[in-house]
Amino acid sequence: MIEVKGLHKSFGDVHILKDISTTFKKGKTSMVIGQSGSGKTVFLKCLLGLFDYEQGSISYDGKIFGQLNADEKRNIRSKIGMVFQGSALFDSMTIAENVMFPLRMFTKQSKSEMEDRVNFVLKRVNLADAHYKMPSEASGGMQKRVAIARAIVNKPKYLFCDEPNSGLDPKTAIVIDNLIQEITEEYNITTVINSHDMNSVMEIGEKIVFLKDGKKAWEGSKETIFKTDNEAVTNFVYSSELFKKVRKMYLEENES
C-alpha cells in the first residue's frame, strides 16, 4: 500500500501540488486523472522519488520514503516497476535485453534463469516472438507491452504507469488496460496509473483520484464517478457528448 499525506510541491514560486493526501491499495488499479497541467506527472514523479517535495510524506507499506537512508530507498526502488509515457526503452538494446535489464542489475540469477523469466513475461504480454527486435522496429503498442514486461520482470510490489495509452489506437489501448489490470490482480501489486483517457478510467479504475490545479478535487471509483455531482469532475469527465450519453444511460439503468 502507498500512503500519501499532505503533499506539497513547488517549482520556484509556482505551487504545483497542494496538500494531496490519498492511499493506493495493494491488488487494486488506482488512477490519477485530471486535465493536462493539473499536476499528475509531477505527482507521479514525487511518488517515484524523482522529485523532492517541500511538505508531506509518502510511505510504501508503512515505510516513509523521505526518512529512509540511501540503501533503503534503493531497496524500495528496486521493487518499483514503471511504464513511461514514451515507453523509455533503451534503444541500444534488443527487446529481450530491455526486459532482462532489471534482472541483470538486481539479481544474481544465472543466464538461463534470466532467459526463462524473460521468455515467460514476454509470453505474458503476447510478445513471444519479439526477442531480437530493436525497440525502433516495434510499433507503439508493442513498445508499451515491452515496457510493461520490463516493469514486471523483477516481480515488483508497486507498478506505476504514466499515460500508458497515449498514442495508441482504441483497440490496443483496451489490450494494454486489461493487461495492466490482470497483472495487478495476478501479482497482487499496488498499481497507480496517470491518465486522461476516460475509456481506461471507466474500464479499470478501481480507485480514481481527480486532480485539479494541483489539488485533489475528488476521490472515488469507476462506479461512483457516474453518480458524483462534483462540478469539476463532471466538467472534465463528461465533456464529450458520448460520455454524457453513457452517464445518462447508466443513471437511467440504475434508477429502473
Partner: peptide
C-alpha cells in the same frame, strides 16, 4: 529526452 535516464533512476540505478 526519451525518459531513459528517468527509467534508470526509478530502478534505483
Amino acid at each position: 529526452v526519451t525518459e531513459q535516464i528517468d527509467a534508470l533512476e526509478v530502478m534505483g540505478i
